[in-house]
Amino acid sequence: MIEVQHLTKRYGRVTAVEDVDFKVERGEILGFLGPNGAGKTTTMRILTGFMPATEGKAIVAGFDVFDQPIEAKRRTGYLPETPPLYPDMTVVEYLDFVGKLKGLLPADRRQRVRAVMDRTRITDMADRLCSKLSKGYRQRVGLAQAIIHNPDVLILDEPTAGLDPKQIIETRELIKELSGDHTIILSTHILPEVSQTCDRVVIINKGRVVAVDTPENLTARLRGSETMYLQVDAAHADAPAVLGRLPGVTRVTESDRRDGLVGYEVESEKGHDVRRDLARAVVTSGWGLLELRPMRMSLEEIFLSLTTDETPTATEDGAPNA
């Protein structure tokens, strides 16, 4: 549905996006993850035809955005970072105007305006001026205008930025609902959002793609070794030694000590589940086992490790361009 090849954008001497390559299949939600200034907005603006790329190619819904911009735009809905609302129009007037811009015929338009207001739950605000809307509603009206012409592709630039937690959850739900009919690219710098809404993630840093994968795979791939957290009820001087002797265990470090409880981080070889052995060893030694859980690398850590320079984990599985 969306194909981006060797996309590069330079502003004078500054390179905003360099050699970006990715594909999005029909019906997929792709998360575009990266710190501020990584080139997310630039890439999206190129995909929507707002600005041309310096080099490379972008194909949206089968049309090249440079060679056939009108056709590509007809099939793209775009929600920029700030919803592009006209303050002096009411919500209905605004959506009707956008419908006209997108080339909807009058009869069809009236019905589509009603349908998108229903879908984004803004019918109550239909006759309110856009300038009088709250941040959450502005965002929803922005979403409504993006889907008014029922585009194949939806491009959403930070759709949840600046919303309160309840609105964030609602917006995520809405985006998930929309993914049935539309192929979606959304950008964010909020990590949980990606694991909750996206099928695949493109991590971009300093204009380059550093990883493309599913959120689960990214988590798994970046775990070079498995780490277990183990908590026992008293300080036992020989505990590290006992645990360290178990097969597969590579390292045991004491991580915390509180109220007589001691926590250890037990690292083991990849693919070697040591949980059973750990539990047995604790019990046979007569210690009280209070907690035993795998320590997952959170997306936050992955993100940091990928976007901080030259981390060995990023290149391990041959991440593109790393």
């Binding site: 707002f50 009108i70 592009p84 609302l85 997108k102």
Partner: peptide, 14 residues
Amino acid sequence: RSGTIELLLTSPIT
């Protein structure tokens, strides 16, 4: 200033 230019320039019109 208001960013609505993004709407116009990404709509299917020249």
